[in-house]
């Protein structure tokens, strides 16, 4: 875990507020909990200065009172760093990371479609993964969402 410990130390010395927020869960798994206002500077530092060169996944969560987003960053295919940020449910907005990772595009569109989190700075493009005629304001991955609210009538598919 030498490499993982070094990463933890570097993060904690660079960003004081990450003390006690960085946890080594096991070999090759680092977990960082972070506030929304600090998110961008930490993300930028990890992506640009710490050789984390892949973003295997972005995971959106409905945590009850807040939304959570976990950015899974990967270093040399091996070490995973989960950067978890919490957003206020009344105005869930986050800046896009697609300028660092082109692969973020589809993941971030999922956040918008399935949870209703606005992603600032995403380039124009088709929505993903819900259909174009999906009713506005219906976000399936929210805990209070029920499938019966979006009934699709037969024969709509050719529209």
């Amino acid at each position: 875990m030498a490499d993982e410990t070094k990463i933890k130390e570097e993060l904690e010395s660079k960003f004081g507020y990450l003390k006690d927020k960085t946890v080594l869960k096991r070999d090759r798994r680092i977990y960082v909990d972070i506030n929304a206002e600090n998110f961008h500077e930490v993300f930028q530092y990890i992506a640009k200065n710490m050789h984390f060169n892949a973003l295997p996944a972005v995971i959106g969560l409905d945590e009850g009172a807040t939304f959570g987003i976990i950015y899974v960053l990967c270093k040399d295919g091996s070490v995973l760093l989960d950067l978890k940020v919490h957003l206020d449910k009344s105005d869930p907005e986050i800046e896009s990371v697609s300028k660092y990772f082109l692969s973020a595009d589809a993941y971030e569109r999922e956040l918008t479609d399935l949870l209703g989190i606005r992603v600032k700075g995403l380039p124009n493009g088709p929505r993903y993964p819900l259909p174009d005629d999906w009713p506005a304001g219906e976000y399936p991955l929210r805990k209070d969402w029920k499938g019966s609210r979006c009934e699709v009538s037969e024969g709509d598919n050719n529209a």
Binding site: A106, G125, P126, R127, Y128, P129, L130, P131, P140, L141, W145, G147
Partner: peptide, 14 residues
């Protein structure tokens, strides 16, 4: 070219 995906979305995660 641009790509539109999602036609196989089946709501498995939910």
């Amino acid at each position: 070219m641009s790509i539109r995906m999602g036609y196989n979305h089946r709501g498995i995660e939910k």
